[in-house]
């Protein structure tokens, strides 16, 4: 019955058994080469920035941008954080960092909360006209932001809220809503309707079902949402510039002001340090979110 060749046959025929032996094909080698080249291509600018930020201006003027620093210094980083000038203010980019945190934290929390409630209501309660509402919301996600700028400026001016923290935070919430709603709606669409029905038979209403049953199950999608929103809002430049007001300018806008300030010699090392400092928060989020990162990208892809 057995079709396995018996060893008694004596020949040195290799019997296929156990894990298949690994072999390095030409295709594999090509693939690795491609990945390597791509990695180098994208990492080279980061490398140059890092090297430059640890050099003094004298060393930079020599022009060997790929060399390691001969006289390692942290002074550019200290200058960038505490002393870099935007116009007449020379308080460094730390002010922008604080502003960005103050803007990002409430914006992320509130936009996710609103998206989660929206998605929950659309998925389970199916109010009349839910599909129309959802279509309109989606449409909102695809209209270029620039088209909203002037009308929004007028609205906030009329309300007397223009260029305040409230202004910039609410703008972030509004523009985060479509994608957050879509994200949560799709997540809740994957949860069996019977769970919702069970909660209703148990007497749980709209909020009770949301907080006691649905929200505790939503951890994975909340993590994805935090990654998406935190990086998006931190990286925002346009809204910050237009709506935040002079006192609340986020880090991205301040960085631009430092790098583009025209007075005196261009301090490349300080510029590089300030840029890396600004990018540090999203970088850290990407690094530490691990496997959630890919899901975040995939989920974010709906935004186009």
């Amino acid at each position: 019955m057995s079709s396995i060749a018996s060893p008694a046959a004596g020949s040195r025929v290799v019997v296929a058994r156990g894990p298949r032996p690994q072999s390095l094909t030409a295709g594999r080698i090509g693939l690795y080469c491609f990945i390597l080249v791509t990695a180098v291509y994208f990492l080279a600018p980061l490398y140059v920035m890092l090297m430059t930020s640890f050099k003094s201006m004298d060393e930079i003027r020599l022009g060997n941008i790929f060399n390691l620093p001969q006289h390692f210094t942290l002074q550019p980083w200290i200058d960038a954080w505490l002393h870099a000038c935007t116009g007449l203010n020379c308080t460094g980019i730390s002010v922008g960092f604080t502003n960005s945190v103050i803007i990002t934290v409430p914006s992320v929390i509130l936009s996710i909360a609103a998206g989660a409630i929206n998605g929950y209501a659309l998925s389970f309660w199916k109010p009349r006209g839910a599909n129309v509402l959802f279509a309109i919301l989606l449409l909102g996600a695809f209209v270029p932001y620039q088209a909203f700028l002037y009308p929004l400026v007028r609205v906030y001016s009329t309300l007397g809220l223009f260029n305040t923290l409230t202004n910039i935070i609410t703008v972030h919430i509004i523009f985060g809503l479509p994608v957050m709603t879509l994200l949560f709606r799709n997540f809740y669409a994957g949860i069996p309707m019977e769970l919702f029905k069970a909660a209703r038979v148990d007497g749980a209403g709209f909020w009770r079902t949301f907080f006691s049953v649905m929200l505790p199950m939503s951890t994975p999608i909340i993590i994805v949402a935090v990654i998406l929103q935190a990086t998006n809002i931190w990286n925002d430049f346009l809204f910050g510039l237009v709506f935040a007001g002079r006192e609340n300018l986020p880090m991205t806008v301040q960085l631009n002001n430092i790098v583009n300030s025209t007075q005196g010699e261009r301090a490349y090392n300080v510029d590089m340090a300030a840029t890396i400092l600004t990018a540090l928060v999203p970088l850290a989020i990407y690094f530490f979110s691990g496997r959630w990162f890919v899901r975040g990208i995939a989920a974010g892809a709906v935004k186009g």
Partner: peptide
Amino acid sequence: IGMVFQSYALYPRMTIEQNMSFGLKIS
């Protein structure tokens, strides 16, 4: 009425005890 579903529809983040007492607590 009390209802039992094909997919069990238990609240995944609650213990068995909490699952059974959820409705009673609400009432």
